[in-house]
Computed example of a mutant assay.
Amino acid sequence: MRFEDIEIEVNVLDNGQRVITQRGFMVGVGRIRPPRGRQYYRGGANLPAFLTVQNLKPFIGESLIVLANQVEFRTKQGGKAFGYAANFLPEVCDVFVRAQRAGVLKATQRNLANRIRVIAEKLRHSDMIRLIDEATGYQDARDR
Rank of each mutant, 00 (worst) to 15 (best):
T136H: 09
Q54R: 13
N114L: 11
E9T: 13
P34A: 09
V97L: 10
I129Y: 12
Y41T: 00
R33A: 13
A45E: 02
G79T: 09
R130L: 05
R38T: 10
F3C: 09
R115W: 13
G16L: 11
R36W: 07
I116M: 07
I129E: 14
N46F: 07
I132N: 02
T21E: 02
Y41D: 12
D5P: 01
P34R: 13
E121N: 12
L131P: 07
Q139E: 15
G24K: 08
T136A: 07
N55K: 12
G137W: 04
G43R: 10
Q77D: 15
T136M: 12
L56I: 03
G44D: 01
N46I: 09
F82S: 04
I129M: 13
G79A: 08
I32P: 08
L13T: 06
Q39K: 11
K122R: 14
R110A: 14
Q39C: 13
N46V: 14
I20T: 02
C93F: 03
Q54P: 11
D143W: 12
A86P: 07
S126N: 09
T21P: 02
G83V: 01
G61W: 06
L105N: 08
I129P: 11
I132L: 00
R31W: 06
F25M: 15
F3H: 08
K57V: 10
V95S: 02
I65K: 08
F88V: 09
V92N: 02
G83I: 03
T52K: 01
I32D: 11
D5N: 07
I20Y: 03
G78I: 01
I132H: 00
I6Y: 01
G61E: 14
Q17V: 15
Q139I: 07
R33F: 11
L67N: 06
R142E: 14
L64H: 05
